[in-house]
Design a protein around this nucleic acid. Structure first.
Length: 550
RNA sequence: GCGCCCAUAGCUCAGCUGGAUAGAGCAACGGACUUCUAAUCCGUAGGUCGAGCGUUCGAAUCGCUCUGGGCGCGCCA
């Protein structure tokens, strides 16, 4: 059993024996003392209970300690400190046992099962298929993928989905924009329409189409031509987006097409449900949804006076479809420009009869690119964007993923291209990878010296502080994953890995692994193998390479 | 105007489901390679946690107000 769990169970028993029956789970929380000398874990229950029991926290702490029957295999020492902390010092016996646990659990070390197999869907990026993916998409892609993986690790059944807006106005505009480029290639000057796409990628695309079809398309009626060109452009751009994702080591379970919903007239079902609940009304020739009844600031149009379903209505149908596919929780990661959209969608979810708790929207904040200390200016309207591919090609997938995840998602991210490219100590990605490579190298060296790590190794040779610090750090991994998933904070993983690498490098500096002392050598080889396993599990979860050589 | 996000060391950021003396990296300065990779380690210096009020035994953390910044508020998608 993991020491944290053991302590919590024992604490629970002690609370019961104090006559406390209803236990608030937060009372079982174990703090990690920041200060050295305050032990490894701290029970804060005494302070939390002070008000309820109307007793001084230090007295409660003493009562608790008197009833805590902690096995010395796990806990070596307890003491009351400060306002009423019970500080616990983990015993070396259980820490050594942890090393074995890590190696036995291998890739699964750090996993847990509180998700109980519930089905969760992550929908993220879902950029319009009207151009290449940009760097905001790259951030969303890294975050969505890691969040999904984190949820897999804590026991959810997860699917990753990309919603393709392949219908509606923007696709018509795409067709018209390609048409302009195509006709221009053939010498017919044609304007890109208002709101159309000016990016250079459409010029390339038009050339390719000319190369393949010549002027054949120019013979068609304009309507037919726009449709055909739009379809071709969409297919090509979508394929490009998929290729970018592949390169980014991201694989979606499903690319969901908006046209599927349109063909099925899926929005009619939504209109029917809303109508039955009397949540719609007609005004000015349009059909409206009384979203204001659910906290939205005003009512919203579902069907325009022209008889067209709005994007919003289709999106409601999409979310209904997700629920009907059996997901218990829906995570939507949206860009900052969709902020004003959250409330109305939440209203719709409620109107459909689902709990707002099951629908979790997170806004991924913008990315500012810096090069040589200057902001790289981008203008979508003028078609000046930094493509996701360019960034990946320049800094590499490892660095891109690391930096995109290494920040709270609610914060705008300043991405320093120069730093991400640096192959030096300034770059945390290399720092972590180096720890992994360093361990691999020691293990290779040991093998060359004819020392193979043995399962029979006597771990009691692990004795000193830097060895114990390393084990303790490894032990934290499971909790880091759980909290990162629970609080939707993937940056906890990168922060943790950095710290783990740091503790390892310090251990390395203080201790020689392969030495004359066989007993110690064996034990330390086991220890660093366990450490490497944890680093690797962390990097794998981020889908960052764990190199054996650097 | 309304709503959301944010403000912590010179810079980039952790810490925030209330807890002990607020931490890293970079930059600055000073040390450590005859050794399993110095892509490393150790040390020094650096702070009114934007301001104020409140809640509390206790606030960077929670609430309110203010200041300063970013974004969003269409019968668009």
């Amino acid at each position: 059993m993991k020491p944290q769990l053991y302590i919590q169970k024992t604490l629970e028993k002690a609370l019961h024996s104090l006559g406390i029956d209803r236990i608030d789970p937060t009372w079982l929380n174990l703090d990690k003392p920041k200060q050295e000398g305050f032990g490894d874990l701290a029970i804060t229950a005494a302070m939390a209970l002070a008000r309820e029991l109307r007793q001084p926290p230090r007295k409660i702490a003493q009562d608790l300690i008197d009833r805590l029957e902690l096995d010395p295999f796990y806990v070596e020492k307890t003491e009351i400190a400060g306002p009423g902390f019970i500080n616990l010092f983990l015993a070396k016996t259980c820490l050594r046992r942890t090393v074995i646990d890590i190696l036995e659990e291998g890739e699964a070390f750090g996993n847990s099962d509180w998700g109980q197999g519930n089905r969760v869907q992550f929908e993220f990026v879902s950029a319009n298929p009207t151009g290449p993916l940009n760097i905001v998409s790259a951030r969303a892609a890294a975050i969505g993928d890691v969040l999904a993986t984190l949820h897999e690790r804590v026991g959810f059944k997860v699917e990753r989905e990309y919603y393709v807006n392949d219908a509606g106005r923007q696709v018509r505009l795409l067709g018209a924009s390609v048409n302009a480029r195509y006709m221009a290639e053939l010498g017919h000057k044609t304007e890109i329409p208002e709101g159309g796409y000016h990016g250079a990628y459409l010029i390339d695309l038009a050339r390719d189409i000319v190369a393949m079809h010549g002027h054949a398309l120019a013979e068609l009626s304009e309507k037919e031509r726009l449709t055909r060109l739009g379809r071709m452009a969409l297919d090509t751009l979508l394929a490009g987006q998929r290729a970018s994702m592949d390169k980014y080591r991201l694989s979606y379970d499903r690319w969901f097409r908006e046209t599927d919903l349109r063909q099925r007239q899926a929005h009619l079902q939504v209109l029917q449900i809303f109508a039955e609940k009397e949540l719609t009304f007609e005004k000015d020739g349009a059909t409206w949804f009384r979203s204001s009844l659910f906290g939205d600031e005003k009512d919203r149009v579902l069907v325009t006076s022209e008889g067209e379903p709005t994007y919003f209505l289709i999106d409601i149908a999409y979310h209904l479809d997700k629920y009907e596919r059996g997901f218990a929780i829906l995570y939507d990661l949206w860009g900052p420009d969709h902020h004003g959209y959250i409330e109305r969608m939440r209203a719709a979810i409620q109107a459909l009869g689902y709990s707002t708790d099951s629908f979790r929207v997170h806004i991924i904040q913008q990315v500012n690119l810096f090069r040589s200390g200057e902001v790289v200016k981008m203008s979508k309207r003028a078609g000046e964007i930094i493509e996701m591919d360019e960034l990946i090609d320049e800094v590499g997938v490892d660095a891109a993923r690391y930096f995109f995840v290494d920040r709270r998602i609610s914060q705008p991210l300043d991405f320093d291209i120069d730093l991400a490219k640096k192959q030096s100590d300034e770059n945390p990605v290399y720092y972590i990878q180096y720890a992994h490579a360093r361990i691999s190298n020691i293990l290779r060296y040991a093998e060359e010296q004819g020392v193979a790590p043995s399962a029979e190794a006597d771990l009691s040779a692990l004795e000193n502080d830097s060895e114990m610090d390393l084990i303790k750090k490894c032990l934290d991994f499971g909790q880091v994953i759980s909290k990162a998933a629970q609080f939707v904070e993937p940056h906890r993983v990168t922060t943790y890995l950095y710290e783990l690498a740091n503790v390892f490098h310090r251990f390395y500096h203080d201790n020689r692994v392969v030495s004359e002392d066989h007993r110690t050598t064996q034990a330390r080889l086991i220890l660093i193998r366990a450490t490497r396993q944890v680093i690797k599990n962390g990097l794998t979860l981020l889908r960052i390479d764990a190199p054996e050589n650097m």
